[in-house]
Computed example of a mutant assay.
Amino acid sequence: MAQQATPVRTARLGRALGPEPTAVSGAVLLLPAGEEISARRPSPLLATASVRALGRRLSRTGREDGLVAHVVHYRYRGWNGPEAHLAADADWAVEEVVRRYGDVTVCLVGVGMGGRAALRTAGHEAVNSVVALAPWLPEEDVAASPEPVKQLAGRRVLLVHGTNDERSDPELSFRLAARAKKANRDVCRFEVHTDGHGLRQYRDEVIALTEDFVMGAVFGRALSRPVQDALAAPPPLGLRMPLAAGFGRSLRH
Rank of each mutant, 00 (worst) to 15 (best):
G14Y: 00
L46A: 15
Q3N: 13
K181H: 10
P42E: 12
T105K: 13
L86H: 04
P148R: 03
V206F: 09
L237T: 12
R249C: 01
A118H: 04
V214L: 06
S250L: 14
L133I: 15
R60E: 03
L158C: 02
A27D: 08
L58W: 00
R40Y: 07
A16V: 11
V227N: 05
P44A: 05
F219G: 11
T210G: 04
W79A: 13
D141M: 05
S168V: 10
V109W: 00
A53Y: 06
S25D: 10
T6P: 08
R221H: 15
L176C: 04
E96G: 06
V24M: 02
T105M: 11
D195K: 04
G154E: 05
D165K: 08
A230M: 07
Y74S: 13
L86W: 01
A222V: 11
A90I: 05
V131N: 12
A245D: 03
A39K: 13
Q228N: 14
R60Y: 05
A222M: 03
F213E: 12
V131H: 07
T210A: 00
A222E: 15
Y101F: 13
R41S: 14
K150M: 14
G246W: 04
E35W: 08
Y76C: 12
D169I: 05
T105R: 15
L209S: 09
L67E: 01
W136S: 09
P7V: 00
L29K: 04
D103N: 15
S173R: 09
G81E: 07
A222R: 14
G26W: 09
D169W: 02
V227K: 07
R116K: 15
R40N: 14
K150I: 14
A11S: 15
E139G: 14
V131K: 05
V109R: 02
V51Q: 09
E20T: 13
V131S: 03
Y101S: 06
A244R: 14
L29A: 02
V111P: 01
R9W: 03
W136H: 11
D89I: 04
P138W: 10
F247R: 01
A39S: 15
L133T: 03
E35S: 14
A183I: 12
A118Q: 02
A230N: 05
G115M: 05
S43A: 11
L223A: 11
P21K: 06
K182Q: 15
S250F: 05
G81F: 05
T163C: 04
R156C: 02
L209V: 07
T22Y: 00
V218M: 14
P148Y: 03
A69D: 02
E205I: 01
H124P: 05
T48C: 11
L243G: 06
F247V: 00
H124W: 05
A180P: 04
V130E: 01
L209M: 07
P226G: 06
M113D: 03
A178Q: 10
F219M: 12
Q151N: 13
S250D: 13
D141P: 00
D65N: 09
F190D: 07
R175H: 09
L46E: 13
L251D: 00
L54D: 06
D91T: 15
A134H: 11
D91W: 06
V94M: 11
T163A: 08
L31P: 02
Y202F: 12
H124V: 10
A87P: 01
G62N: 05
P21W: 03
A33G: 13
R75C: 07
G81W: 11
E147G: 00
